[in-house]
Simulated assay, not measured.
Amino acid sequence: MAETLAVHPPALRDLGILARRAAGLDGTALLRVRPRAGEPAGLARVFVTTPFGPLGCRSIAAAPGRESMVVRADAVAAAAEAAAAAGPDPGGGPVTLDCGAAADASWPGALPPETGFELIDVVPAPVLLDLDEKARAVTRDTPTPLGPPASLLDQEVLEVADGDRGLRAGVRVREILALTRLGFIPAEPPAGEPVRVSARGRWTRLDGRFGTVFSRAGFDVIAL
């Protein structure tokens, strides 16, 4: 039986973009939809896997056919494109997408906690785009058939800190590539465009204008 996802028409474009970008990065990328606790009915967190490790996430007005369903991102992208081409429901109700077979067993691990993240610092988006470009340059100079080498992805290229609370965290190339390749910050952001860096235990999150990246391994909050 195919998994279904009911999407409010204004959110269809955002869902399609997220699924298409995830599938473009990795043809086997997965998408997971989970209703948000404590939020109005119909609003869900939509997660996607990336080949860099971190998860991408957007809040979208959608309701899965069952709790926390997992499907392939390319199937969702195709369904969203077909629904957009067909036009809106004359009745104005949600659009039901056929998202293909369930893929729960392939999901790589736990989801991040919904609450409890502490803001550490705000980084200008142009700084992250500059670091992204430097990582791309290294990849062009040393290409591999499997994409960026792990040694590059694991490099900690930025440190953020809150001295008043004695907290600091390191941002790796993995998090930056996930944030920029999923299009979660503008391609040409203004100088003051913020990216918020928050953490809870071993989980961290980078919040851009258009979405959030969550990462768990190697991104700890450490007391100074």
Rank of each mutant, 00 (worst) to 15 (best):
A63Q: 14
P186V: 11
V221W: 03
A217P: 00
F52T: 03
A150V: 07
A178K: 01
L153R: 12
R165H: 14
A169R: 15
R209A: 13
R72F: 09
A19H: 08
A178L: 09
R205Y: 06
R209H: 09
P194G: 11
E133Y: 05
F214T: 03
I120H: 07
E39G: 06
A6C: 06
S198Y: 06
V157K: 02
A37D: 13
T50F: 07
A61G: 06
E159T: 15
L182Y: 01
L128Q: 04
E39D: 10
V197Q: 06
E39P: 00
P194F: 02
P10Y: 04
R205K: 13
D98M: 02
A62V: 07
E118Q: 15
E175G: 15
D154F: 14
D89F: 04
R21Q: 10
A22Y: 13
E118A: 09
R32F: 00
D98G: 00
P40D: 11
L167Q: 14
T144N: 13
F184W: 12
A86C: 00
D141S: 09
P126K: 04
G170W: 13
V213W: 02
L25M: 12
E114M: 07
P126Q: 04
D220G: 07
A199M: 04
L119W: 00
T4A: 09
L167S: 12
L153W: 09
A23P: 02
I60K: 00
L15E: 05
L12M: 10
E193M: 14
G65F: 01
